[in-house]
């Protein structure tokens, strides 16, 4: 059982906690000669491969560094513009590193707030009155399990797609939240969770689930 990440959304729909557990790192570094056989574009403040997929370099991956110099936006850390460097044949051969884009915290907050209305729509679509919202959302590569408490807090676990019900795990996370977040007198409700003890115990729990499954948690 592999758990990818855990999210907690507050009563009012804001993301108050997120934790990435297992993120497979996909990074490729290769040396290229002029001209490049694939197209790069600047999208959402990142330089990504838009066309020309070839050995390990996948459309959608981001450019992480040029000759070992990393970049922010389209500017290299030494002040040069990436596109200018790559257009100039004198700079070749050049070594480029590509990787899977990581979600930024802002994107996560944005996505979490998108989930909130989806959840509400799901509950209204139901033919019977008073249905629950989304409990499981399934895709090719993962399954999202969502659990809403009576008080309106949502716990979400993104895990590998299996048929196993994750109710037990979600409930254990709820218990950890009650113990290490709410019982911390310096935590204020509805605010982002920054509690070391909670992090530690959550990590422990997820490792245990990974090793021995859901049976003994």
């Amino acid at each position: 059982m592999i758990v990818y990440s855990v999210y907690i959304v507050s009563k009012s729909g804001g993301l108050i906690f997120n934790y990435d557990h297992t993120v497979s790192k996909v990074e490729v570094e290769q040396t290229f000669s002029y001209p490049l056989e694939f197209k790069l574009v600047n999208e959402n403040k990142r330089v990504i491969v838009s066309f020309g997929q070839r050995d390990g370099i996948i459309v959608g991956h981001v450019l992480m560094s040029v000759n070992g110099i990393s970049l922010t936006g389209q500017q290299l850390d030494d002040g040069k513009d990436v596109f200018e460097v790559l257009e100039n044949s004198e700079n070749y051969p050049v070594s480029l590193k590509f990787g899977r884009p990581k979600m930024t915290t802002n994107e996560k907050i944005f996505l979490a707030s998108m989930f909130y209305p989806l959840f509400a729509i799901a509950s209204q679509l139901s033919p019977e009155p008073k249905s629950s919202g989304i409990e499981i959302l399934e895709t090719d590569t993962f399954k999202l399990h969502c659990f809403q408490t009576l008080t309106g807090v949502k716990f979400m676990v993104v895990a590998e797609p299996t048929d196993i019900k994750l109710d037990v795990l979600l409930n254990r996370i709820y218990e950890l939240y009650a113990d290490y977040v709410l019982k911390n007198p310096f935590y204020s409700l509805e605010m982002p969770i920054r509690c070391e003890l909670f992090d530690q115990n959550l990590q422990l729990l997820l490792e245990q689930v990974e090793k021995s499954g859901l049976a003994n948690i």
């Binding site: 009576l150 807090v153 939240y177 009650a178 019982k183």
Partner: peptide, 16 residues
């Protein structure tokens, strides 16, 4: 109370 209720719900699995 507003904090303890979550503990109660998490540990007893009470419904509405």
């Amino acid at each position: 109370g507003i904090r303890l209720i979550e503990d109660f719900l998490a540990k007893t699995n009470c419904g509405r």
